[in-house]
Design a protein around this nucleic acid. Structure first.
Lengths: 181, 181
DNA sequence: ATGAATTTTCAGTAATTACTGAAACTTTGA
DNA sequence: TCAAAGTTTCAGTAATTACTGAAAATTCAT
């Protein structure tokens, strides 16, 4: 590993642990991401000085997040791993997977909590707060879903617009006032 | 704690660990969030059966995330803690703090990596990928910053629009074609 | 200043999570 | 069907992180 790659990999190892992801997994992904060609498990274990089995676990985790693609090379039985070279695509996958793992369980917990009939003031207030949270998370979840379908270019345009989108909304609000939104 | 609140608190304890946040901190915040009035450390320790010192640590962490507000009650020396009752506000704080803790260090690492002059093909490719990632993260970081300034209502409108925003962009793209955007 | 009420720190311990090496399993070519 | 190449599982151990209780520090009324 060159020093450039080494520092990139190290950074993602540390960052990883601020997420749910562990150091090994972060480093493996960083390495695959910057590699010009797919890597096999042994190469990864070698480069990072981790045991073969640890790398195997890490790759399985990355697969469960759908962040790596498998490749096969003719005449070679080993599996090779590759990341999308487009950071947008990675981000999209990550967002979708987080929605599924973090938002959905919370939404279903909140939904069932909101079905309960509160029998005291404490529960009444609690439910009120939960309702607000449910509303927010549901909205964001749907929004993620919509965003998912935009192509990178449109999304980039939307982001570059930033706060100016507000102006646009005000404008269309006027144009469409009276219609369904 | 009522069963309703208990299940909410338990859920956030478990969810917390999928984030960087630990179980205790997640539970403390959940409890504060649904409480109709500010709580003091002893009440929290009591409700969750954690040691007073553990709760103290947890509250400190929540303060470092700026997720709790301190309140004082006349004639009572203890500090009371409260969460914004508006989930939007919480989300905004969280997003800002994550940007600061996760995006900024990564951006600065990437920036310095991109300043290096690559001396071989491996580094050249790696830098190319890093450039893509830098572009994406920087764009998102700026966008978060912009979003920050929108009021909840506008943001909600934007989200409810979802993918339809694409149509809007196409429209304005036509209107403005030739101008600076 | 004194001391009671409260909060924080910290060293030690418990619990959890990460990692390894060996063994089991799978796949494929001869 | 066998054996070689490759991958996964898993029990045990290492490393990390969470938690506690006791002691120290802080705050504030007198």
């Amino acid at each position: 590993m060159t020093p450039l790659i080494q520092s990139f990999v190290a950074h993602f190892g540390e960052m990883g642990s601020r997420w749910g992801i562990n150091r090994t997994v972060g480093q493996i992904y960083a390495l695959i991401f910057v590699s010009p060609r797919p890597l096999c498990a042994d190469e990864i274990a070698d480069a990072l000085s981790y045991s073969r089995s640890n790398v195997s676990m890490g790759l399985k985790e990355l697969q469960s997040w759908r962040l790596v693609k498998l490749r096969h090379i003719a005449g070679d039985r080993r599996e090779y791993f590759e990341a999308p070279s487009d950071a947008w695509e990675i981000f999209r996958t990550l967002a979708e997977e987080r929605r599924r793992r973090e938002m959905e369980p919370t939404l279903s917990m909140l939904r069932s909590a909101l079905l309960e009939v509160p029998t005291n003031d404490e529960d009444r207030v609690a439910q009120e707060r939960m309702r607000g949270m449910h509303e927010l998370i549901e909205m964001m979840s749907n929004w993620f879903d919509d965003i998912q379908r935009l192509d990178a270019q449109t999304l980039a345009r939307l982001m570059r617009m930033g706060a100016r989108v507000q102006k646009l909304l005000e404008l269309t609000g006027q144009l469409k006032s009276g219609s369904k939104e």
